[in-house]
Design a binder for these strands. Sequence first.
RNA 1: UGGGGUGUCGCCAAGUGGUAAGGCACAAGGUUUUGAUCCUUGCAUUCGUUGGUUCGAAUCCAGCCACCCCAGCCA
Length: 571
Amino acid sequence: MKDHGLNAPSNFIRSMISKDISSGKHSGRVLTRFPPEPNGYLHIGHAKSVCLNFSLASENNGACNLRFDDTNPEKESQEYVDAIKENIKWLGFKWNGDVRYSSNYFDHLYNLAMQLIQNGKAFVCSLSAEQSREFRGTLTEPGKNSPDRNRSIRENLNLFKQMKGGEFSDGAYTLRAKIDMESPNINMRDPIIYRIRHVSHHQTGDKWCIYPTYDFTHCISDAIENVTHSLCTLEFEDHRPLYDWILNNLELDSLRVICDLSDSDMTFVLPQQTEFAKLKLNYTIMGKRKLKEMVEAGLVDGWDDPRLPTLAGMRRRGFTAASIRNFCEIAGVSRSEGTVDLSMLEHCVREDLDQCASRVMCVLNPMKVTIRNIKKGEVENLSLQNHPKNESMGTRIVPFTREIYIDKSDFEENPAPGFKRLVLGGEVRLRGSYVIKCEEILRNGEGEIIELICSADRETLGRRPEGRKVKGVIHWVSAVHGQEATLMLYDRLFMVENPEAKEIADYKEFLNPESLSVIKNCMIEPSALEGRERKHYQFEREGYFILDIEGENMEYPVFNRTITLRDSWGK
RNA sequence: UGGGGUGUCGCCAAGUGGUAAGGCACAAGGUUUUGAUCCUUGCAUUCGUUGGUUCGAAUCCAGCCACCCCAGCCA
């Protein structure tokens, strides 16, 4: 599938970067970064940011760093770090150099905080969490200065050292930037930049008991890495003044000294934050907290449950990385918050899979058909194309025998108008094989149809029948060669478009009870099981499928349905 | 009744003073040994709204309306 690449649609960030390059803003350099917090798995919403940051960089001969924003050890873990790295690689991106961590910069961050104190721009505050909330004011009322705001520099320095030294308990003190308690922007009301947390950190162990906050860490980390364009989502817009305040109130030279200037000609320029709207998709949930809750409550089968919008889940379900990249591209980047319709994602997978999936036949609800003019024991090995439009994908052998299975729904006793499949006395094409005619219906004691007796027109292999048109084509599997398989059919996880809407108290009440149907005893042609590879297949007329993760280790094969085929008839 | 944003077809989204791109969805045809794919065609006299400026406005100005974000020692 083509990635849009150079012909990618324009958006306001691309335009901004082009302007920056032509004006020589960062000496024409582009360095972006993807900064996940390792506190959960990546989902399709993150994919938008990953794609944006990495493609903007590569389009402009730049690079993109992967930096874990790991300043809150209580919620983070190595498991998430590993999963996130894996997801990014799978999506097809390569980060610049080594993986980075904000925690790599804890020493620098500490020293810069000391510098702020030294310059009278930060102070140690003894207000409790509750008190600081009271002092902060409200949206419409200004805050009040902390009683500690005028503590001497000397005392602040000592106290902060003691905080670092582990002499205080959690919450006893915080370090706050001295900005403006009356600012209409609450983020500027002497924001906390360091807090005491006696917990060990997944990267730094027990070295620290004070941890910097996001606002203090993020801008400095960007500066240290020499990031030029710091892209984030809209909710951080109000933080931009603080991002800039911190960088502008630090001594430029002290940043220059520690920043990652590999090229000595490179001029050191402060990073610039730009915000875009995050991706929302309907009929699903993107909130990390909720995803985690569903995983932990066992409502789904782990972070990689194929119904989840997590990259791990989508991968397991059979989405291709290319289709996700393309989806992020065509969904666009803007500043207006919208919800992209699921159909757009579905279009992208189908578009990609149509080109790369091998065709194979699998009968979901088998019904036996005996073709009376085929000899018992006779096997005709048919050679079928793996792709109708791409010969380079080769052929496979599909055995044809007297007894076969077709899908129950491909036969109707009382067909609706327009029904093109098999009816008593009617003809239908067996895909890649003969045209057969249904001559008899066999029933059990309850009157249920258990078998069809047909005859084949042996002149119709690879040829049109003479003197008549046969419209219907159905898939089939040899009853003697067919293998049993279990199919996992997925549907949207939620019954409502926006399970995260404000009016919804508990999204769990809107889970779709039919989001998963397990279809056992399906009959699949033998070629689909060769090698037990995790390969994308199109089960003709049914949809795109892929072997579930266990692959070759499974006792019997389980396939996940990635997506159905488009269906303008409606089964 | 604080601050910051956003409003262009059912959904996403270009457009930045010269008379509404594109994609998804949908609809109608055509091809087809997948009711798939593919192809063709259709789909906003109108850009949240009301006024104003202008020969000319989605684009500029003013007012109004709707929605989103912010009062974590989360990110």
